[in-house]
Simulated assay, not measured.
Amino acid sequence: MVERVALSTQFTMEILLTIALFITFFLLLRQEKALGKYAQSTTLFTRAVDQYQEAVEGYQEAIADYQEAIELFKQEIEEYELLLQQHGIDKSKLKAEATQQLTPPPPPQFNLHRQSQSKTPQTQLSPILPKDMSLPDLKTAKRQPSKPKAVSKNGPLYKEFLHLLNGNEETANRLITRQQQLNPDRLDNWILEKVIGDLKRDRRA
Score class of each variant (00 low, 15 high):
A20T: 11
L129W: 03
T43G: 11
I89R: 01
R203V: 00
Q179G: 01
E32C: 14
E68I: 01
L102Y: 04
F73H: 02
P184F: 12
E160S: 12
A20P: 02
L21I: 15
R114E: 08
I196L: 05
I128E: 04
T103F: 02
Q117C: 01
V56A: 07
R186A: 13
L175G: 02
K139E: 04
V151S: 13
E61Y: 06
Y66M: 08
G197V: 01
E76C: 02
L182T: 09
P106I: 01
A48M: 02
D50N: 08
A62Y: 02
P136K: 05
T177N: 07
P148R: 09
F45P: 00
Q86S: 06
A34K: 15
T46I: 14
L165N: 05
F22N: 11
A55N: 12
E14T: 10
A39S: 08
I196N: 00
S152Y: 04
T12G: 10
E71R: 10
S8D: 14
A205L: 07
S146I: 13
E79Y: 05
Y52L: 13
A150N: 04
H113P: 00
R186W: 12
H87L: 09
P104A: 12
Q51C: 06
K37V: 12
Q40M: 06
T177Y: 14
A96R: 04
E81F: 10
A69R: 08
T171H: 00
I176E: 00
A6V: 15
V49N: 06
K149N: 04
F110S: 02
A98T: 04
E81V: 14
L199V: 02
T12A: 15
I15C: 04
T12K: 12
A34G: 13
Q122V: 10
K95L: 05
K200H: 05
K147A: 08
A96M: 01
T103N: 08
D188F: 09
Q31R: 03
I63C: 02
N111Y: 03
A34Y: 11
E193H: 04
E3S: 14
K147G: 01
S41F: 14
E169H: 12
G155E: 01
R30A: 09
V49L: 14
T42F: 08
E81L: 13
T12H: 08
P148W: 03
Q85A: 12
T103V: 09
H87E: 13
K37M: 15
D185F: 03
L162W: 06
Q85S: 10
L102K: 05
